[in-house]
Simulated scan of single mutants.
Amino acid sequence: MRRSHGEVAPAVWRALETYRRAIPPEALGWYGSPDGDTLPLDDKGWEHIRQKILDRPSANACNVDLEEGASEAGGYNFEYRGRRLDAPLFAHDEDATSGVAFSFPTEYLLEHGPAHLRALALELARELPFSFGYASLAFVSPRGFWYAARHELIAPLSRYLGLDLYRLDETSRVIGTHARGAYWLTFLGQPLLGQLGGIEALRDKLSFPEVSHQPMEAERLLLTLGEWPDVIDTQKAPLVPHYRALAHLLEPFLYEERTGWFSLDKGNLRRWMRRLCQ
């Protein structure tokens, strides 16, 4: 979201409440305190989070991390990086954004089915003034804690091209109004959707039976690439054409990472970000 924290804070809070209603009670059990500790997310903790998001609209930054477990990876997690884009730290960075991520364990998808998760993602997205967003199968580790195991993740990433690996804190600071790639659910807002030619142009260019096009208010679009998310196992089947077609359309609008969070070689990250364009 190429918007400052104060502009998006109410929408982020509403989306968080929607997420909280959709997941099991107490699924989010911990939050990061201002002093760096991880504390139980009780009623007092929720009030602290509410105040942090809503009561400081002029804050230079608002970072919120809510996790299922105090030390485990995966599961249910909420991450928000709100930034005041005119603050000295970001004022000269044209690509800084406010970003938010909601994660679910694979069991949630299997129990409720893809239609339910798609409807929930759409409900969350309606609240948010996004330029780009997505839902994907992914390696999920709160706050990028997977970084210590990044070398072990390279092999499965090279085989399963439909798996995502993200680090919200750094990506949200550099993505601007660009795209991140082609995903099972790909949300396109402005100005990106206009740069791609608009809704009707994408209907013509992505006229695959597996792809559904759902217009959203405020000139936005949700693309769904198949009934279920596809792990894209390159050892079992060739790259699915509708994913590749969307990846090629988005390639001119992909952002460039400015940090070496994937490895010291940024070329590795650039190739991985464009893995569906090959």
Rank of each mutant, 00 (worst) to 15 (best):
R2W: 08
R2V: 04
G6Q: 05
A9D: 03
T18I: 10
T18V: 06
P24L: 04
A27H: 03
G32A: 13
S33N: 13
T38M: 13
L39Q: 11
G45N: 08
E47I: 04
E47M: 10
R50T: 11
I53C: 03
D55G: 06
P57L: 09
A59R: 10
L66G: 07
L66V: 07
A70L: 08
G74D: 00
E79F: 00
F90D: 01
H92W: 04
D93P: 01
D93I: 07
A101Y: 00
S103V: 01
E107Y: 01
E111A: 09
E111M: 03
H116L: 03
A119K: 05
A125H: 02
L128M: 00
L137F: 01
S141A: 14
P142E: 01
W146D: 02
Y147R: 14
R150N: 10
G162K: 04
L163R: 04
Y166K: 01
Y166D: 06
R167W: 14
S172I: 10
R173V: 09
G181V: 10
W184V: 03
L188F: 11
E200H: 09
V211Q: 09
M216Q: 13
R220M: 06
V231T: 05
A237F: 07
A245W: 07
L246R: 11
L246T: 13
P252V: 09
G260E: 09
L264N: 14
N268E: 15
R270S: 13
Q278R: 14
